[in-house]
Computed example of a mutant assay.
Amino acid sequence: MNQALREMGKALAKARYVYASAGNVSMRHEGETMLITASGSDLASLQLDDVGICSFDGTWRGRRKPSKEWRMHGVCYETWADVGAVIHATPFYATWLGCMNEQEDLSGLFVEAMYYLRRIERVPYLDPGSEELAEAVGEAIRRGNILLLENHGVLIAETSLNEAWAALETLEMAAKMVVLAQVSGSTMNQVDEAKQEAFLRSERYKPAHPLHQQMEGGR
């Protein structure tokens, strides 16, 4: 699993979804613990020592202390049993969208958005690593697994690293479409909600997302 986090760090850097020492990644580990990147890590070149084990209450072991954002990662795992990985990144267009006052519905823009972007929440700016931010994330993550952290970046909680990556790419694609449409003054078409629901219930697409099912039906 350590290697999986290292590979994800490289992928995030290569796609320019993180910069400098921004961003952090974690995976659910044994019991009430997670593997998480260390504080100040360069995700583009993670070493073995750059990943440690941290409990949801902040107790950790490893050669380097965990990211200061461990609290908001931990609350995602505590809230939903199906969450297996969390990515905090700063993709350009999604971060831009989080800095704008307008709230856009992204789920009806294209097929993948219908699946991955149905549950997006916004979290007002609070200092990175603070207990206040973790509390706000804890409230928002009950309603949506993709969070736009205003003036900060994005947080994605998913069933696996692969699903988190897919959601992140879908989010950035949709955000780019919205931002460019606004800049150019274009009007975008949306698939209406009834057609979205019908499509997701049909046999022509993958089954309902397990995390979304859990959110809809309660824990």
Score class of each variant (00 low, 15 high):
residue 1 M to W: 00
residue 2 N to M: 04
residue 3 Q to Y: 09
residue 6 R to Y: 02
residue 7 E to A: 14
residue 8 M to E: 09
residue 14 K to D: 15
residue 16 R to G: 03
residue 19 Y to G: 14
residue 20 A to H: 10
residue 22 A to D: 15
residue 22 A to V: 10
residue 25 V to I: 15
residue 25 V to K: 06
residue 25 V to Q: 11
residue 26 S to G: 15
residue 27 M to L: 15
residue 28 R to S: 10
residue 28 R to F: 12
residue 32 E to H: 13
residue 36 I to S: 09
residue 37 T to S: 15
residue 39 S to C: 13
residue 41 S to L: 08
residue 42 D to I: 03
residue 45 S to I: 11
residue 46 L to Y: 02
residue 47 Q to T: 12
residue 47 Q to A: 15
residue 48 L to P: 05
residue 49 D to N: 13
residue 49 D to F: 12
residue 51 V to H: 04
residue 51 V to P: 04
residue 51 V to F: 06
residue 54 C to R: 01
residue 55 S to I: 04
residue 56 F to C: 12
residue 56 F to H: 14
residue 56 F to Q: 10
residue 60 W to Q: 08
residue 64 R to S: 15
residue 65 K to F: 07
residue 66 P to M: 07
residue 67 S to K: 04
residue 69 E to Y: 08
residue 70 W to M: 10
residue 70 W to K: 07
residue 73 H to S: 06
residue 76 C to H: 00
residue 76 C to F: 00
residue 76 C to D: 03
residue 78 E to Y: 00
residue 79 T to C: 13
residue 83 V to Y: 01
residue 84 G to Y: 09
residue 85 A to R: 00
residue 86 V to E: 11
residue 89 A to H: 05
residue 89 A to F: 06
residue 90 T to L: 15
residue 93 Y to A: 10
residue 94 A to Y: 02
residue 95 T to R: 13
residue 96 W to P: 01
residue 96 W to G: 10
residue 97 L to T: 11
residue 99 C to R: 05
residue 100 M to N: 07
residue 101 N to T: 12
residue 102 E to L: 07
residue 102 E to C: 05
residue 102 E to Y: 09
residue 102 E to K: 10
residue 104 E to N: 13
residue 104 E to S: 14
residue 104 E to K: 10
residue 106 L to Y: 14
residue 106 L to W: 02
residue 107 S to R: 12
residue 107 S to V: 04
residue 109 L to G: 06
residue 110 F to H: 09
residue 110 F to C: 07
residue 115 Y to C: 08
residue 115 Y to T: 06
residue 117 L to A: 12
residue 117 L to H: 06
residue 118 R to P: 00
residue 118 R to D: 05
residue 121 E to F: 01
residue 121 E to I: 01
residue 122 R to Q: 10
residue 122 R to L: 07
residue 123 V to T: 07
residue 126 L to A: 14
residue 126 L to I: 06
residue 127 D to L: 12
residue 130 S to D: 07
residue 130 S to C: 11
residue 132 E to S: 14
residue 134 A to H: 06
residue 134 A to S: 14
residue 135 E to W: 00
residue 136 A to T: 07
residue 138 G to M: 00
residue 139 E to G: 08
residue 140 A to P: 04
residue 141 I to P: 02
residue 141 I to T: 05
residue 143 R to D: 03
residue 144 G to P: 10
residue 147 L to Y: 00
residue 150 E to C: 11
residue 150 E to I: 05
residue 152 H to G: 07
residue 155 L to C: 05
residue 155 L to P: 03
residue 155 L to K: 01
residue 157 A to H: 04
residue 160 S to E: 01
residue 160 S to W: 04
residue 161 L to T: 02
residue 161 L to F: 04
residue 161 L to K: 02
residue 162 N to Q: 13
residue 162 N to F: 04
residue 168 L to E: 06
residue 168 L to P: 03
residue 168 L to H: 04
residue 170 T to I: 01
residue 171 L to K: 01
residue 172 E to M: 00
residue 176 K to P: 02
residue 177 M to F: 00
residue 183 V to P: 03
residue 184 S to A: 12
residue 185 G to R: 14
residue 186 S to G: 07
residue 190 Q to H: 15
residue 192 D to Y: 09
residue 195 K to V: 15
residue 201 R to C: 05
residue 201 R to F: 03
residue 204 R to Y: 11
residue 206 K to C: 03
residue 207 P to M: 10
residue 209 H to D: 15
residue 210 P to K: 06
residue 210 P to R: 10
residue 212 H to V: 11
residue 213 Q to T: 10
residue 214 Q to F: 03
residue 214 Q to A: 13
residue 216 E to P: 00
residue 218 G to V: 02
residue 218 G to W: 04
residue 218 G to M: 08
